[in-house]
Design a protein around this nucleic acid. Structure first.
Length: 270
DNA sequence: CCCCATGTTCGACA
DNA sequence: GTGTCGAACATGGG
């Protein structure tokens, strides 16, 4: 489910527990979500610490607890964070529950593609340092985009936009939305995008991410009808721009929805 | 039963 | 070494 705006939405769900003590926790023992985590250490140190704050970066989140404790959370394909009552117990898909006096903080992930990590130390963990510039930060520049597209020049632009090392937080639907707005065919080799087309792409990467954050992050608002989003999974979907049929095609190993009448190959003159 | 799914990693291969 | 591609992970929904 989650791409950058949904991740930010889920991160905020646990804000209600900031400053309050973790009284105990429950871990789903066989869960694959803890493959990068020593659950014994987590069980030993987290009780009696307080949830301090959290931040998100792309699809990753970091929760900080008192006592120099840090928990990394990735939601994979089907992960969710939510809040339950203080006496909630875990079902089949609740892999981690943190109990506070008035509530429980719940991590649920049916497919278990997500991951939980844990770290002790006065500094943030190594796996949180050295992340690429956030798309919405000033450090994410047109030059950085151009350099990356040149390096991946033969790959379809759709596949390139999914690379978290340069586009942290972009997932399948955001990538399609961006290419649709920029009027670029998803199969276009990344190296062919230059000049004004590159500028359009850059602006729409920033623009779509900013709009998604504004609409989805606060309360899971639904994007408007004039986005590709609501049409992409409908049978016989219609492009909101041209009113002509959308198509679905596997590009870069992922199902891609695009509008042949609207999205074009870049011209040599661009 | 079949196919599909908003993600990432790993091994095979060019 | 570099880059690309499919399979695998585990589960549920249509």
């Amino acid at each position: 489910m989650p791409e950058l705006a949904e991740v930010e939405y889920y991160r905020r769900q646990w804000d209600v527990g900031w400053g309050e003590k973790i009284l105990g926790l429950q871990i789903n023992p066989g869960s694959r979500n803890f493959r990068d985590c020593d659950t014994g250490v987590l069980e030993r140190y987290l009780p009696n610490s307080k949830l301090r704050c959290s931040e998100a970066h792309g699809k990753r989140m970091l929760f900080q607890f008192s006592g120099n404790l840090w928990m990394g959370v990735h939601l994979g394909m089907t992960g969710e964070l939510s809040v339950g009552g203080p006496d909630d117990t875990s079902g089949k898909h609740e892999h981690l529950i943190l109990f506070q006096k008035k509530r429980s903080l719940i991590y649920k992930d049916p497919r278990q593609f997500g991951a939980i990590r844990f770290h002790r130390g006065s500094d943030p963990p190594a796996w949180w340092s050295g992340l690429p510039p956030s798309i919405l930060s000033r450090d994410f520049t047109r030059d950085l985009l151009r350099e990356f597209l040149t390096r991946r020049k033969k790959s379809p632009i759709k596949a390139v936009l999914l690379m978290q090392e340069r586009f942290p937080g972009i997932g399948n639907w955001l990538a399609d939305e961006i290419l649709w707005r920029a009027r670029i065919r998803p199969a276009c080799p990344a190296g062919k995008i230059a000049g004004i087309k590159l500028t359009h792409l850059f602006q729409n990467i920033k623009g779509v991410c900013a709009d998604a954050m504004r609409i989805i992050a606060p309360d899971w608002g639904e994007p408007p009808e004039n986005w590709l989003f609501l049409h992409r999974w409908r049978d016989n979907g219609i492009c909101p721009k041209t009113k002509k049929p959308l198509v679905r095609e596997t590009i870069g190993g992922r199902t891609t929805c695009w509008s042949p009448a609207w999205q074009r190959w870049p011209k040599e003159s661009d």
